[in-house]
């Protein structure tokens, strides 16, 4: 792989309520990993997990930021938002649990599968959240 000992860092803004742009950050990371020669299966896991977190920030939290750090061992993605927070993370992690409004359900979001997908595709998922303050979703995929 074309990765030396250095760390590659990228920052993205996840715009609020703009579904047409939702996914730009994960798509850019996907292209970067492909260029670095990361195995396709790993690229797919990273990009699906990141896309789900990115879309969650758009739908549930009015946008946020994404920070990506890639080193020899792992891809570390941190999605931060200043949205409403998640009152019960254990419940939110359950397949099928969703508070998505009808307007986004009509677009096919709101299956309540995003967080379970992230858990499945990531090697590690860490959620820090405070009601009224925001949420930090940290995804690690080992290389």
């Amino acid at each position: 792989m074309g990765l030396s000992n250095s760390i590659i860092r990228q920052n993205y803004i996840i715009p609020a309520d703009d579904f047409s742009l939702a996914g730009e950050a994960s798509s850019s990371v996907k292209k970067m990993l492909n260029q670095l020669g990361v195995p396709p299966k790993t690229v797919k896991r990273v990009s699906i997990a990141m896309y789900e977190a990115e879309i969650n920030a758009v739908i549930h939290a009015g946008g946020g930021t994404a920070d990506v750090a890639i080193d020899k061992e792992k891809v570390l993605i941190t999605i931060n938002d200043e949205g409403p927070g998640i009152p019960d993370v254990e419940l939110a992690m359950k397949e099928g649990f969703s508070t998505a409004p009808d307007s986004v359900r009509e677009m096919g979001f709101g299956a309540g599968m995003g967080l379970p997908n992230i858990k499945r595709y990531a090697d590690k998922l860490d959620i820090k959240t405070e009601v009224g303050k925001g949420t930090r979703v940290q995804i690690t995929v080992l290389l």
Binding site: S20, A22, S26, K44, Y51, G108
Partner: peptide, 16 residues
Amino acid sequence: TVHTHLNIVAVALLVE
């Protein structure tokens, strides 16, 4: 799929 908005392109690419 019956969806026709932009995000279907992103999903299609992710799942390949």
